[in-house]
C-alpha cells in the first residue's frame, strides 16, 4: 500500500510537469527542451527553505512556485528573439547551465550530495495524506490548464503557434503571450519540483539533468501534444509500465538502462509513426 501511495504521488507530480510542458510545447509551439531546470529550481527552493531555514512547507511550496515562475520569465526574456530550432537548442543549453548551478551552488546537507530531512506538515506527513494532497493539487492544475486552453487566452496561444503574423496583425504581440505562458508553465513546474522533493525525501542535482527533460518530452509525446488528457495519459501509462518492468525479475542494475532504451525506442517510434501521440491534437511540425 505504501508503495502504491508513493507511485500515485509520483504520477501526480509528473502530471503537473507534463501539463505545464504541454502548455508551452503543445499549445504554444515553443520547443522547450530544458524543463528539468525549472523543476530543479522549484525543488531546491522548497527543500532549501524547509530544511535549512525551517520555513513551513506550505509556504516553501508557494515560494517554489513564485521563484520558478520568475526564473522562467527571466530566462525566456533573452531567448524571445530566437525562433524555431535554435530556441530548442538554447533551452537545452539552459538545462546544462542550471545543472552546474545546482551542482556547484545548490545547498546540501553536510556529508551528502543533496538535501534531505524535510519537515513535512500534516497534509504531507503520511504517505496516504501526501498522495491525497499531491493528487488534489494535480487535479487543480489539470482544471486550471483546461480553463486556460478553453479560454480566449488559449485561442491566442494556438494563434501564436499557428499564425503569429495574424496575431500581430490584430495588434497583439505574440511575445507577450509567450512570456506569460512560459512563466505560468515555469511556476507550475516549480510547484511540481517542491512536491517532487516531498515525494522523494531527498534531492540532488542528478535528478534534474537533460534526461529528466527528455522524460517530459516522452510523456507528452506519447500522451499527445496540445491535449490536457494526453498529458495525464502519457504519464500514467509510462510510469505504470515502468513499474511493471521491476517485476520481470531482471537484475536491478539492468532496470535503469532498459527503461532508458525503451524511452529511446518510444521517441523514435513516435517520430516515425505518430508524431501527435495517442490523443494529441498537434504534432511536431518541424
Amino acid at each position: 500500500m505504501e508503495h502504491l501511495y508513493y507511485l500515485g504521488t509520483l504520477i501526480s507530480v509528473w502530471i503537473i510537469v507534463a501539463l505545464a510542458a504541454n502548455l508551452v510545447i503543445g499549445y504554444t509551439g515553443m520547443m522547450a527542451m530544458g524543463q528539468a531546470a525549472y523543476l530543479g529550481v522549484g525543488a531546491y527552493v522548497a527543500a532549501g527553505l524547509n530544511v535549512l531555514l525551517g520555513v513551513n512547507f506550505h509556504l516553501a511550496l508557494l515560494a517554489a512556485l513564485l521563484v520558478s515562475g520568475a526564473v522562467a520569465a527571466a530566462t525566456l526574456w533573452p531567448l524571445l528573439r530566437i525562433g524555431g530550432f535554435y530556441f530548442a537548442l538554447a533551452t537545452l543549453g539552459l538545462n546544462f547551465v542550471f545543472f552546474d548551478i545546482f551542482h556547484n551552488l545548490g545547498p546540501r546537507v553536510e556529508g551528502s550530495e543533496g538535501l534531505h530531512g524535510l519537515k513535512l506538515p500534516d497534509l504531507f506527513a503520511g504517505s496516504g495524506a501526501r498522495f491525497a494532497t499531491t493528487a488534489a493539487l494535480a487535479a487543480l492544475c489539470f482544471l486550471a490548464c483546461r480553463t486556460i486552453v478553453g479560454s480566449p487566452l488559449g485561442r491566442a496561444l494556438r494563434a501564436v503557434r499557428d499564425r503569429p503574423d495574424a496575431l500581430a496583425a490584430l495588434g497583439k504581440d505574440p511575445r507577450r503571450y509567450q512570456m506569460l505562458i512560459w512563466s505560468v508553465a515555469g511556476a507550475l513546474t516549480g510547484l511540481a519540483g517542491g512536491l517532487y522533493a516531498a515525494t522523494l525525501f531527498y534531492i540532488d542535482p542528478t535528478l534534474f539533468t537533460l534526461d529528466a527533460s527528455i522524460l517530459v518530452l516522452v510523456y507528452i509525446g506519447v500522451g499527445g501534444l496540445a491535449s490536457t488528457w494526453g498529458s495525464v495519459l502519457g504519464v500514467v501509462l509510462l510510469i505504470v509500465f515502468n513499474e511493471s518492468l521491476r517485476y520481470l525479475g531482471l537484475p536491478s542494475q539492468y532496470v535503469g538502462p532498459l527503461q532508458q532504451a525503451l524511452y529511446g525506442l518510444l521517441l523514435i517510434g513516435l517520430m516515425i509513426f505518430r508524431r501527435r501521440g495517442l490523443v494529441g491534437e498537434y504534432d511536431f511540425r518541424e
Binding site: 520547443m31 542494475q253 532508458q260 532504451a261 529511446g264 521517441l267 523514435i268 517520430m271 516515425i272 511540425r285
Partner: peptide, 29 residues
C-alpha cells in the same frame, strides 16, 4: 523514415536523441 513521413528538423532531432539514449544504455550495461 522520419523525413519520408513528413517529419522535419525537430522530429529528426528528437529521433536522434532516441538513438543516442538506446546506445548509451547499451554501453552502460
Amino acid at each position: 523514415p522520419v523525413l519520408k513521413r513528413g517529419g522535419g528538423m525537430f522530429s529528426v532531432f528528437i529521433a536522434s536523441l532516441g538513438v543516442s539514449l538506446i546506445f548509451e544504455s547499451g554501453f552502460l550495461v
